[in-house]
Design a protein around this nucleic acid. Structure first.
Lengths: 226, 226, 226, 226
DNA sequence: TATGAATGAGCATTCATTCAT
DNA sequence: GATGAATGAATGCTCATTCAT
């Protein structure tokens, strides 16, 4: 019944609202609602977000939200799909031409970690979804599909490294991707309780550099120990 | 005004409710509320949890919740503190007598990862708290204190390994702890979106073993590369 | 955010509900809520009034009360402003053409006292507001403004009487107004404890006439003693 | 079932709490509850007052309030009776020996007005009771009885003035008492809405003196106009 | 006499959603 | 496409009161 035009073409990372509202602007209204919803769901989660706040931020009324997305939950699902697609798009934009396997792997890791650090809102949405046991993404075909290209890339780099004799063999790309994700995800997602329980902010400045350096070194130590 | 007797002595991991209700049982009532609250906050987060459900599960009425904990938010804070204390207590219960540094480090990592896998409710609570930017733990002295002993243990193992010439030097215990946490945390906390986006459950059976093996190997590869 | 259309034009004394409810009637709904609120606040004061009762009496639901007035307290403030405006409007409707100063003063006094006796609900609201130390009217510009015309009228009558040589000079209109108010207010506002402590009802029939006669005579005795 | 020891002997004006609490002090506990209740009912009225606040202020627990007074409403009734008795006692303490009728009348008026100005809490309680249509005093015999002596005094002064040829005849003491009360009551009871609607405080300093002067003059102008 | 523990009904307010135009 | 008006079922929290010791 409700389709996501954002996913039919190459999706764009949700930016900030820069447009003034003009009357009778169906696509604009829809997009503004989506942007506002991303902000609200990021801020407060599914149950914490308020539909009237979303409508207000989107410079429209609550009715339109239902007109375009059917329900608060379907809107949440759409927001998640768009966010995942944005991540996928960003990773696929990198080119590894001329890189050695070690360089390519390093570049990929850093790219993923950078994206996480620069888009904490994605992580908040994903955390929310995990708290709901992925109820709203389970029906979504889009998310699974958007992860395939990046796994493929990882597989290629591993294969090239193995062929070149610098990487160990029999590394599963899925497990490797999850490990890379874990290292980047945790310090961003859990920055607040980390700061509260340890007194350090691992996502900014000096600590961040040290973290990236150690994690890179650790991953390469593993991959290159034949 | 409201104190947490759970934290004054060695705290115990909140188990499941096994007791029948008896009249005039202040400690029992308080404990049942706390257990029920842990379940509800785990299930639905702070805003999603319902005080009437907590009261019902605790076999008491809503009024007692306010009588003992003051507000839903203070109850949430207490639940978090108790959960952190439970983690800390569990880790401090391990003995490393007779272990080599590599064995001790391996044992510590596995212990942390096991705890995470066996207590997904702690991770859900922590995720919730991060979504609130640690608002409810910020005032808490208890959490910070409960992390110190485990950091000290890590420091000792690192020092012994360095002394024995098997571990590299200049490894920061805080960063190491966070890295270990990240590896164990992510696969549990994000198991649902991982399953949705990759089709695999990395916390159960075969996948779990492979994950633990790889992460252990990776960590030791890093620490032992002098 | 919430405006009071009742005060923008000449306000009318809130009467009793005589209209049936019709669907989609924003002005009607708003007015019915205001009328019902006046009744409820008159009956039980701010804290004693029940929003569900107001909604029920207004043939709508509680949500609309907040939709139109924001909060119970803002509704209370609006009720007060409307009541004051009703008093002011009633007094300004009198014409003193052809009256001697003594006649005019007598007529004004009686008009005020009549209004008090005929609108005990205004007095109850004012009493309530005084118990709250005028917290809800303090922000209101409307009330102060609505008292100016009547003070001006009093001033004119005093000046004419002084010019005609029948009234004493140097009578402050504010103090005079308060004295007139006091005499009319007390017997209505405190009728219940007066009856309890003295066994007489000074607002009805014989007692009322005697009271009005004495107060009129007293006031004129003062004003005409040069 | 519940008696009021305060009224059996000469009652005292409720002062401020000066006693420390001692264990097992039945009369002290009862008195402290009554004092605290007077404060609370004065502050917030019957429905606004909170029994837990009363208990807290009285340094006891809510249960004792019910033990001594039966219910919140009966406590309210007792507070009212004590307050009325305090007024009566104060007025009966004046001696008019050697006064001319005009002096005596002036002294009595000023005494009443002074009491009102110095005990606004009595007026708040009376206002509250009027908002409840004297529901809680209706059963009370005490209040009616406590007003008789003061009416008798007024009657005597009127009779002496009439005998001396300075006061007019056929003045009803009840109506006179009410008129005197009205003048003193209104400026204290309604000081807040007076200030809000007129911008003047008629209970303090200069305005107060002018008010007392005018009201005295007005009353004597009436009584002495034969 | 005194007290901490317990209760159920009720409170103002907010929720996501739908109606009528 | 767009909007203000309307709804009923929660929501967290507080109330006066009573129980058990």
């Amino acid at each position: 019944m409700w389709t996501n035009p954002e996913l039919s073409a190459h999706s764009l990372i949700i930016g900030y609202m820069t447009d003034l509202k003009t009357k009778r602007d169906p696509l604009g209204t829809r997009r503004r609602i989506l942007e506002a919803a991303t902000e609200e769901f990021t801020r407060a989660g599914l149950s914490g977000a308020r539909v009237d706040q979303i409508a207000k931020k989107a410079l429209t009324n609550e009715r339109m939200l239902y007109y375009y997305f059917g329900s608060k939950e379907q809107l949440f699902t759409t927001v998640l799909e768009v966010a995942f697609a944005a991540f996928s798009d960003a990773e696929l934009a990198i080119s590894f031409d001329g890189d050695t396997p070690v360089e390519a792997m390093t570049r990929l890791m850093h790219s993923i970690w950078d994206f996480y650090r620069e888009h904490p809102e994605l992580l908040r949405l994903v955390n929310n979804e995990n708290l709901h046991e992925a109820r709203y993404l389970k029906k979504s075909m889009a998310v699974r599909a958007s992860m395939q290209p990046i796994l493929l890339r990882l597989k290629e780099i591993l294969a090239q490294g193995e062929l070149a004799g610098v990487f160990r063999s029999q590394v599963e790309p899925e497990l490797l991707f999850i490990t890379i994700s874990a290292l980047g995800y945790y310090v961003v997602s859990n920055r607040y309780t980390i700061e509260t329980s340890m007194g350090l902010d691992f996502t900014l400045g000096e600590e961040c550099d040290a973290t990236v350096r150690m994690h890179t070194e650790m991953m390469l130590a593993y991959l290159t120990r034949l």
